[in-house]
Amino acid sequence: MKRQQFQHPFLPYFLVVPQVLIISIFFVWPAAQAIYQSFVLEDAFGLGVQFVWFENYESIFNDRQYVVSATFTAIFSTLVAFFSMALALFLAVKADGILKGATSYKILLIWVYAVAPAVAGIVGTFLFTRNLGPLYNLLIASGWDFNPQVNVADAAFTVILVSVWKQVSVNFIYFLAGLQSIPTYVREAALIDCKSNVRRFWTIIFPLLAPTGFFVLVINITYAFFDTFGVIDTMTRGSPAGGTNTLVYKVYQDGFLGLDLGGSSAQSVILMILVLVLTMVQFRFIERKIHY
C-alpha cells in the first residue's frame, strides 16, 4: 500500500486564506474585542480604562431588567420560531399540492422575504396605531381591550406577529424545496399503502423533511434572537415596562444609547455563549434523530 501524497503543501493553505481572513476580521477580532471589553470598566471617551475582572458580569446578574429581558427573549424566540415554522410548513404543503397557478402562489408567499425587519416593524406600527391602524380597529371591534402601548402582553403579541410574518416566507422557501426533493416514487408507494393524507404526511413526508426542518430550526432560533432587533426598535423600543426588551435590544440600549461599554460587552459575551450552547444542543440531541 502506498499513500497518496499531494505535492503542493502550500496551495491548500493559500486557497483557504480568503475565508480565514474574512472570519478573523468579521468574527474573531470583534469577538475578542468584546471579551476584552467585558473585563474592563471605562468612561465613554476612553480616557480611563481599568481592569475589573468579573464586575461587569456581576452587575448584569444584579440587574432586574436583565431577568425580565431573558424571560421575554425565551418566550419570544420559542413562539416566533414555532409559529413561523408551523405556518410555513402548512403553506408549503398546500402550495406543493397545487397544480394550476403554482408560481403566482409561490411568489405571493415569498415576496415578504425582501422586506427588511425594520420596514416590517414600521408596517406593524401603522397596522397597530391607536384609533387608526386597521388591525387595531379590528381587534377592538372583536371585543378585545387591546392596548399595546400600555399592556405588555398586547405589545408582545404585536412584535411576535410581525416577526412571524416576516420569517414565514424564508421558511416557506426551504420547506417547499424540501418537499419537492422528496422522490415521487416514495410518495406513490405510500399512497398505495395508506389512504389517509394526514397519516401519510406524519409517517412518510415529515420524517423525510426532517433535515430541512432541522436546518430551518437553527436559522429561526438565530433569527428570533438577533434579527428581530429591527422589529423591536421600530415598534416598541422594549416598552412598555421593559416587557418587550430582548437581550439583543438591551445590548444596544446599554452600549449604544447608554454608553456603558463594559456592561454591554459582557451582555454580548453571554449572548454569544448562549447561542453557541443552543446550537451545540441542537446538533447533539436533535440531529441524531434525523436521517439524511
Binding site: 431588567q65 405588555v152 416598552s239 415596562a241 421593559g242 454608553l259 456603558d260
Partner: peptide, 20 residues
C-alpha cells in the same frame, strides 16, 4: 448613566400606571 436611569424610571412608571 442618566439614559439608563430614565429607562428604569420609564419601566417602573409603566408598571405603576398599569397596576403591576
Amino acid at each position: 448613566y442618566y439614559v439608563q436611569i430614565r429607562e428604569v424610571m420609564q419601566r417602573e412608571y409603566d408598571k405603576i400606571f398599569s397596576g403591576a
